[in-house]
């Protein structure tokens, strides 16, 4: 028997003002799966993420999450349901300490299990544990990205959306980031991964969707897509 999808997006439409960005996107994430979303700049990947996490109201279509319809739901309720979005550009709280940033990660969850969540984050990011009192705004870009993911994990996500987590990182840190994604996958976390690093994303994902012109242009298993001539031509110049 096949598991029902954790995330089931059908014909999702979204945009800003008179400007439509998503013209009907359908995709799904199964429990425990890492799914990559690929596409060139400006096709609407971030818009998709913001719509899924309730920051932007969808204009049509449906978003099923863990069996519930969440399209148009309040963003706080969506976080509480376990859909957590680590945004492009990190958006940590620069004026707050690392500790306060992490504690706010569990804002929607309340204080229960907060200590365990913190221990888990410190286990994954020992460097954050050493910097508890440092203001997030004074950290390096790589450290801020770790903090942003740590803050996301504090919400005890069932599905974690990562929007370009490797953006702006040095090659060494990019390796670390993908190793981390592999680790989270190993722990059974479901991930929706938006990335520009196409080959590395396909290596860590089980399936992927390629978005073009506000629609899914290509989808399939990561293996099949990494051999796909169209994808190689469009994104790798091969």
């Amino acid at each position: 028997m096949v598991d029902p999808p954790l995330l089931d997006v059908r014909d999702l439409r979204a945009g800003y003002g008179a400007f439509a960005v998503l013209h009907g996107v359908s995709l799904s994430v199964l429990p425990g799966e890492v799914v990559a979303v690929l596409g060139s700049n400006g096709v609407g990947k971030t818009t998709l993420n913001r719509t899924l996490s309730g920051l932007l109201r969808p204009r049509g279509g449906s978003i099923g999450f863990a069996g519930e319809e969440i399209a148009g739901a309040d963003h706080a309720a969506i976080v509480r349901a376990g859909l957590v979005h680590v945004p492009e550009g990190r958006r940590v709280f620069p004026n707050l300490t690392v500790r306060d940033n992490l504690l706010l990660g569990s804002y929607a969850r309340g204080r229960a299990e907060r200590a365990q969540s913190l221990d888990r984050v410190f286990d994954i990011f020992p460097r954050l544990a050493e910097r508890l009192r440092q203001r997030a705004g004074t950290m390096s870009g790589g450290e801020q990205q770790m903090l942003a993911i740590g803050r996301g994990l504090m919400a005890r996500p069932r599905l974690l959306i990562l929007d370009e987590p490797s953006l702006g990182l040095s090659p060494l840190l990019v390796e670390e980031m993908f190793a981390l994604i592999g680790r989270l996958r190993g722990e059974g976390l479901s991930l929706l991964l938006v990335e520009q690093n196409v080959m590395q994303s396909l290596a860590v994902a089980s399936r992927a969707y390629v978005i073009e012109h506000g629609r899914v242009a290509l989808s399939g298993t990561a293996d099949a897509l990494s051999r796909d001539a169209r994808l190689r031509a469009a994104y790798l110049g091969l």
């Binding site: 706080a76 680590v86 940590v92 709280f93």
Partner: peptide, 10 residues
């Protein structure tokens, strides 16, 4: 300082 980040944690 970061209303969008705040919205993301609920």
């Amino acid at each position: 300082r970061e209303p969008e980040g705040a919205a993301l944690v609920g």
